[in-house]
Design a protein around this nucleic acid. Sequence first.
RNA 1: CGGGGAGUGGCGCAGCGGUAGCGUUCCUGCUUUGGGUGCAGGAGGUCGGGGGUUCGAAUCCCCCCUCCCCGACCA
Length: 633
Amino acid sequence: MGRWCPRLRFVERQRTRTLYRAAGSLRRDTTRRATRDGFRPEPEVRPVLRMSTLFLRTLREDPADAEVASHRLLVRGGYIRRAAPGGFTWLPLGWIVYRNVERIIREEMDREGFQEVHFPALLPKDPYEASGRWADYGDNLFRLQDRKGADFLLAPTHEEMFTLLVKDLYSSYKDLPLVIYQIQTKYRDEARPRAGLLRGREFVMKDSYSFDIDDEGLQASYDKHRVAYQRTFDRLGLPYVIVSAMSGAMGGSASEEFLVPLAVGEDTYVRCSACDYAANTEAVQVQPPAPIAFDGLPAAAVMDTPDTPTIQTLVDLFNARPELRHPDREWTAADTLKNLVVKLRNPDGTSTALAIGVPGDRDVDLKRLEAQVGPAEIEPFSEEDFAANPALAKGYIGPGALGLENASGIRYLVDPRVVDGTAWITGADQPGQHVMNLVMGRDFTPDGVIEAAEVLPGDPCPRCGSAMEIARGIEMGHIFQLGRKYAEALGLTVLDENGKTRVVTMGSYGIGVSRAVAAIAEIGCDDKGLIWPREVAPADVHIVATGKPTDPQLPAAEQLAAECEAAGLRVLLDDRVGVSPGVKFNDSELLGVPTIVVVGRGLADGVVELKDRRTGGRRDVPLAEIVGLLRDA
RNA sequence: CGGGGAGUGGCGCAGCGGUAGCGUUCCUGCUUUGGGUGCAGGAGGUCGGGGGUUCGAAUCCCCCCUCCCCGACCA
């Protein structure tokens, strides 16, 4: 890393940019890339994009197979085109937008001193076999064979390759810390690709990996990414919520997701209405209530409760029968303890039964459960399984039979709300019988606690106790302290200052690049079309020439476009002849360049119309002032 | 992988045993030029694929593929 100092380079870049801008010879956000030899500016002037020759066809109607706004509008606006199940072709405008997004991400990575590399997407099986992921990844992994029958895969992420690369080249603590990243096409054989770019089987991801000697170093690398991601999403114009995520069985500790709040998103998260707590539902930790003393609690009693197969019928029965009624109030589902038995399919192919007890007013959330028991997968407990375990009375299962020490021998875990001294109505392990006043800690003792009950709106925040709300979002980024799992599996060690071998600790950090394009489109659009933030837009200004082919508007627009180009602005010029103004206006709104200039009937008075795509606001501006206005905008 | 819907010119749709249609797009000519202008002429389709039934299949039957929506999984 020695000689190359990105931080310094960045400062230098800023300075040069200011100079260029002052000279009016550089477009505002010109792309400049870091290389070992210094900064190499791209061509300083981008030629005007002319709609008369642009490889573009906008559609008058929505494509029928597109549901979400971003998919609909990106196809209709001629940005992308479906080419394969879960795969899209980028057309010229789309590719410009895509590269802008990529550039912003790259700049923010480089700014932190992270270094870019590039792996193949097509990889041999061996490293993934060594890490165990060849088996663990399951059907989502694209697998193929070469002509000799050797196994390959199309990489879904590159932890193994990064780990091996560093192992290849580095062997001393002096080489660390290190962060390297790539922007790569990734492949996942999604069961259901959908929503256009939001979830494809081929997509582009920026993934970076940090390598540190100790936990403090890992934390520092993690924090750097956190900050870099915040800056990146700000520049992309994407609102986001940072939520705690499950690091689960992956062996990591800290893990956070950057979610863009969108109803079309597939991630459910909770957010506190009072404090800044936010978490993926899988990661929500319930705050257990205080235990209750056993003194004075009535004794448990078994009751005949025929025809009560559901929680609701059970509660109704208890409220209806005088001898079962609660002395002070109506019974509710929250007074019951619901017990569910599932089968865990372990990665090694074996199965274990697991029983879960949750308050009867909520269901078991299979996603939360799976996050807790991963990498095992959940299967329903079948009729045959019930038959094989006679201690279980289906529909009347209770703590009396559950537990490693009890008749069923099935491990029994309960919700954190089930604390010592709480009394429950629950199954009595005999058909048609329930037990009431069964007290936790006195009458039964489960094998442990599990976070598997569903999270409901209004549940108390684990941090401050205020009511939480539930929202949907799309995962745009994930930062994750991997720890030593991959380094251990693949033997990545370095010598420390005492000459002792140390296993390196790692972090992995991803941003969905192609997904970001869709998310930005989704966030910004309206019923007329797309609205890009300026930095990712395909142009700074969309100049529309109206009037007959022989009118002065077209030459005036050409002239204006040339002046803008010279001033460093990126221009999209609608110079199509014989296209009516209505069509041009509609296209300009569909395409979503943030600023639109109409060279039209005001030209006779020396003015053009300046339109803001987002607000719809428009005003006449003297032709002579327009370039300055745009440049300073 | 379960449940539901659908595949017919670039796009949107109709046709549901008897010669493949409409709108839009595209091409030509005229017309129009501040919100998808009007008129006329034209181009463009292995009716998702394969098998079967039938004198005859876009249409009926079987298998497969693909797309969309809701669930189970992921940036």
